[in-house]
Design a protein around this nucleic acid. Structure first.
Lengths: 229, 229
DNA sequence: TAAGCGGATATTGTATACGATCCCATTCCG
DNA sequence: CGGAATGGGATCGTATACAATATCCGCTTA
């Protein structure tokens, strides 16, 4: 699909983008290690560039770099998972309202195409791609709201959401219904800000509730609990 | 005050921190250029480290790096200034509420010390330091709310706020009254979440209203206007 | 046999060297 | 005299070499 074996030097951002895409689509799982030399060979650049790309993904929260050990796809903790969705709950509903009040016809058309692409991805059994497109839909709304700063934050939150979903999604096969996106699109089409805000709030709660974010005992505590009784 | 002439190698984060502090305290003004070699000499490290530090500050929004031209302290546009305070208005009130509901006595004591330090800075005529401490107060509230993700975002927003204030503050000498911080502290002390949320909302509006964020003509248009008459 | 200890290897961290680009002053030509 | 071309110096971008650190594996020993 995308070029796998580049021969020409590629700027750091291009490498970061491809790695981001791979993580969003769950082709790279949380915990996976990214050796610098390996990435160098794949993209045909020097470690200088690769290190730039890896570091930028660390800032986005997608990678965790451990000193002298390397870069790994982040594994959000339960607490971080909660925080991500709490932050989204603060940012997105108001942003959706603003988007509805500002949306142009071209914006609406673009979102229609977007939802269409999501359907195609689901039908062709590419859940990773569908998930990525679903995230992009949310980003697109921030763009329509003309809130670049919030869009930046949302990009990070959606990245982390993708990791959270990879780790804590309850039923792997039952993917996000895009009904919610359809409904949101209708609100935008009608320039109904209040409705868009409510729908977004509900949509986020919906996703949130489909995650399995209950405390689970790690080895240590479960052993201790077992011995107590 | 802080070490100006380090001889030992300092990690990139330490350099980034010192530069951040200098920018927050307005010792480095928006638009100022940071030549790599110069920073290298000051901290006694190689360009590799300095470039890491500069890049990390670019991600924070404090610096803008122009290809082949260098790193400059960012100059937020009017639009960015508005966006920063809109984003803060979404994040901080709810966070203040959570902080009030969770604050421990130690947290309250720490905030008291914090406000005290702000007063000292104001009295000793160090407005830059006072501004930095004022920003830290807001960060501290996010920490108390135990919202690490939001705290991260807020760190960026407060950094940018500092740049906005450097560019658009109306009266240079009339600095932020810390009455608002006192009132917030009282709410936290009483574990009064609703009050904390309202106070924070008002406080942000207050700062916002003290900025001069009206459209102004840049040099080109003003020249043109001048020639028209 | 399991635990502890080196040493070889792999991998990352940092410094430096080289190449590319830009900036600015000077010069040349109209 | 003014403006475009040009060359040198300064500055940034990238690759590479070397140093520091972690990891793995075999060996020893209780």
């Amino acid at each position: 699909m995308t070029a796998m074996a580049e021969t020409r030097p590629v700027p750091a951002t291009a490498i970061a983008d491809q790695l981001t895409e791979a993580i969003h689509e769950h082709r790279l799982q949380p915990g996976a290690k990214l050796r610098e030399d390996e990435v160098c060979e794949i993209f045909g650049v020097s470690r200088t560039i690769v290190r730039q790309a890896l570091r930028s993904l660390e800032f986005e929260g997608l990678l965790t770099i451990e000193k002298n050990r390397g870069a790994f796809v982040s594994k959000p903790t339960l607490k971080e998972a909660h925080e991500v969705f709490q932050a989204r709950a603060l940012l997105e509903p108001t942003t959706a309202r603003a988007a509805a009040e500002r949306a142009s016809n071209a914006d609406v058309a673009l979102l229609e195409q977007h939802i269409q692409a999501e359907h195609v991805a689901l039908d062709s059994d590419e859940p990773g791609l569908a998930l990525k497109l679903s995230g992009d839909f949310h980003l697109e709304i921030a763009r329509i709201a003309d809130q670049h700063t919030i869009e930046q934050f949302l990009r990070q939150l959606i990245s982390r959401s993708s990791l959270v979903i990879a780790l804590y999604w309850r039923r792997r096969n039952a993917l996000c219904e895009s009904n919610a996106h359809h409904a949101l699109l209708d609100s935008l089409r009608n320039r109904d800000g209040a409705s868009a805000e409510e729908l977004m709030k509900g949509h986020l709660l919906d996703i949130y509730s489909q995650l399995d974010l209950r405390e689970r005992e790690d080895g240590g505590t479960s052993l201790r609990d077992a011995l107590k009784r």
